[in-house]
Design a protein around this nucleic acid. Sequence first.
DNA 1: TTTTAAATGATAGTAATACTATTATTTTTT
DNA 2: AAAAAATAATAGTATTACTATCATTTAAAA
Lengths: 224, 224
Amino acid sequence: MELQLQIKMNPKLYLRDPDGTDLGRNIIKHGIQLIHDIGFEDFTFKKLAIEIGTTEASIYRYFENKHRLLTYITTWFWTWLEYQLIFHTNNLKHPKEKIDIIIRLLTFQVQDKFIVEYINKSTLHAIVICEGDKSYLTKQVTADNKSMLFKPYKDLCHRIAEIFLELNPDFPFSHSLASTLIETAHRQLYFKEHLPSLTDFGKSKEVKPLFSFLQHLIFTALNK
Amino acid sequence: MELQLQIKMNPKLYLRDPDGTDLGRNIIKHGIQLIHDIGFEDFTFKKLAIEIGTTEASIYRYFENKHRLLTYITTWFWTWLEYQLIFHTNNLKHPKEKIDIIIRLLTFQVQDKFIVEYINKSTLHAIVICEGDKSYLTKQVTADNKSMLFKPYKDLCHRIAEIFLELNPDFPFSHSLASTLIETAHRQLYFKEHLPSLTDFGKSKEVKPLFSFLQHLIFTALNK
DNA sequence: TTTTAAATGATAGTAATACTATTATTTTTT
DNA sequence: AAAAAATAATAGTATTACTATCATTTAAAA
């Protein structure tokens, strides 16, 4: 039995809810694919419209601009990751095991239990790695933050921080360590693939050395 | 006595060397200011031309496009940072002291000894924090890397990694830890300013807690 | 089942962006 | 003083990033 998942997104992310119509879901589905294929800079609503077989104007009824679409899909990813985290750490007793799961989740090592037919999660994960930071590295970050657009990312970060505190209640940098873990996992994956001399992992498909690095980083930092 | 500094840049970064003419230096100087003021997305050569009092076409003779200009200035920053690192760690015996300097350099705590009259280094540092990652988070990363555009970043990373190995010669993740340190220092500074709940530092100007966090992260990771 | 409303398609249009090209003028070097 | 290099002035193009209008299709409510 597969678990059907529907994530309710912050309405400020869109003009019309893409999850409610065929066209909307197509925008998300093909949007993810196209951003992945040609990169966010070259991605336009025009190209996406042609891909889907609709018009530019129709896409603009769903999203104010391509940056909002990027924020929508990355935010969806963070929400989904938090679900995964809750699901997979449920019933685990020791925080060490939970942290293990977190690192596995961040490095593609966990089999997905949830199904969303129009979202390809591994393509989405690849986008989050390459383009995700661009959703908050803008001049509108403060306005977007006030609209709560980054809440899912913060929630995930906070949940991870709490697990860190289970292991070491006196640790004074739980949130910074959590955001560092998320960012580092993704950035090292990116470097491994594109700028390998900034890492110690070579270019092999193997994620184990990265996994060990992150484990080492987190557990030594949390050790009393 | 102030040290005059001239950094020789990779010619693939530009079409005409901006360091050789008044207009070129103005492009760098006002380019840094304008990118800082309006953000890289809204920055255009048109706007920069108006700012300088020249024409768009003249700027295009120096840089192929605005992305190249961004890579030029961030690369300049990494080269300058490596100079600073060499200068300030010179004659230091213990790697612990050197690592201290590295962290101070990454968090704006070191007084600059070099002078470059047309580059405002604290504005540049702010750009590197907000926009720097965009120079390699593109579809052209592999081509740019082949042209050695990221060599200064890699050199800095390698130098830091070597210092880590002085402290712990058996540490297997020296490069990843170095790139993580650089990225984390900047990302946490960004979060502190714009998304403070992803950190434990509040929004005060104080960089000390960040400094402690980074010290803790690095020294526990390197500890045998 | 009609009617009404909502969503989409088709088309057009605008201002700005990201360039390239040409020629005249100024500045620098020889 | 002549030659070469750099810059300014101007123009032009394709694409991007939208907004607007109206006709048509599809879905929801009466």
